[in-house]
Amino acid sequence: MKEQGTIATHTISVVVDNEAGVLARVIGLFSGRGYNIESLTVAAVDRNDKRSRITVVTSGTRMVIEQIKAQLDRLVPVQKVADLTIEGPHVSRDLALVKVSGEGDKRVEALRLADAFRARVVDSTRTSFVFELTGSASKLDAFVDLMRDLGLVEVARTGAVALSRGEGGL
């Protein structure tokens, strides 16, 4: 529906049956209906009970977000859908691997910043590092930005995984 409303970003957690094609169904839903995907992560979380959890970060007007949730809920293998953004506080984490190459001062500076960001060095050569960093998406963005001047080569990121705070669960 054409709706003039503010566009907001939402983190949606989806518990699905862990079966062939379920991810394709979710992605097909987003592309087929023209919804945004800012990030999407998926992994099995309960192998006995054959459950996976998909975390989608998406954006849209209030009505579009409601539609996304309802459409997800309609998929047969979807068990539960939760909008973490509106259902109370949640924690969200992204993991990045950041490769930086350089020598001399730049190398030292990169290492110093990595330390400040609590990034771990997971690979190193005399001229390069791969840093592993977890945190909120914005923290990762900030770190990657700082590395640009210090010999950034490439970045791989997982996209957000998120859970609600407190004792309750899906």
Partner: peptide, 11 residues
């Protein structure tokens, strides 16, 4: 019967 029909085209 389908939640996704509700508020899709008309609030």
């Amino acid at each position: 019967i389908d939640l996704s029909s509700i508020n899709k085209n008309v609030a």
